[in-house]
Design a protein around this nucleic acid. Sequence first.
DNA 1: ACTAGCCGAATACATGTGTATTTGCACTGA
DNA 2: TCAGTGCAAATACACATGTATTCGGCTAGT
Lengths: 173, 173
Amino acid sequence: MNASSAAATVRQEGEQVENRGEYDPSNPTFRLENSPFYLMAHADFKYHEDMDKVLHKHGVSKPIYRVMTVLREQQPASIGAIAEAALTKRSTISRIIDRMVEQGLVSTEPNPEDNRITEVTLTPAGQQTLRKLTPIVGRQFSRAMVGISNRDIAHLLRTLKKISDNLSKLPIE
Amino acid sequence: MNASSAAATVRQEGEQVENRGEYDPSNPTFRLENSPFYLMAHADFKYHEDMDKVLHKHGVSKPIYRVMTVLREQQPASIGAIAEAALTKRSTISRIIDRMVEQGLVSTEPNPEDNRITEVTLTPAGQQTLRKLTPIVGRQFSRAMVGISNRDIAHLLRTLKKISDNLSKLPIE
DNA sequence: ACTAGCCGAATACATGTGTATTTGCACTGA
DNA sequence: TCAGTGCAAATACACATGTATTCGGCTAGT
């Protein structure tokens, strides 16, 4: 009987709690290089590390690029909505938007139905900048995915979504 | 002929460059929710968001926990080695170590063979704290991985490592 | 109509991080 | 031996972020 099957316990709904073995950070044999979250951070770090250098040449910082990415999907968007999508605090987004307004990348106007809400929109210059940046980002993405099939990417997405779901739903403790 | 096969081009060594379709951030139909890197950031964010709250009750911040995780694997370790493993600048690690020394979590001493190098070691109190934290982190990990098989985790690790490798090796542009 | 409570955004303050520089040590070659 | 070079760590400074608070507008209950 191996360690994996020894600790597998049948729960309600037939759900299995697997022994995570070397993946479990509370296991003494655990190694960082086998940690999904460490590897995510690592991949993400490398991805942005390179890209930032290029983006900066175009006057665009990482947080600004993040905001532009969000705006490309939903426009106009409120400060709060941007903050949520960009995984950043509202106060921070508020100031990033200030800078973007100064740079002429976005414009803001109060929501006519609720004056508390600030709606943010990409200006033509902002859209222009975004279009210029898009192929650069595309190349970086291709570079990252060399040798990885679309099937693998789909699998990766499914797993990552599942993890996010799990962490959103269940309470901690 | 579908879009995927249309753009697949045979390169040297038989390497294929796939059409990434909806995964490609430079594609007009691209959506953030289909972006591997966005989902990595999202999962990582959620994972640490919850954990930080708990760790703070034990007087341990996220960067401090990161350093402790690195030290668990390699001890003693130099400032530079810790910085590299923790994906953080040396100057930042230097100051984090200062705080950890104040808290009695680690001790430092110059490397006897090279006095420029500062070797960092967990104190008994630091090891004690780490042991106390380990099961908490383990629970958070289990929570994140509910419904995900060890096979899927292995697949995730392979893909993430491949991505990191790609980004480390090839030059940008 | 008014007030209390809520909510979104903006701001004051404290803190943490990165960049650039400095300090101190080790190695090399004259 | 000593100057020059290179490297690790520490520090000065500038800047960005988060927390807590404030400001202003919306909404419901009286």
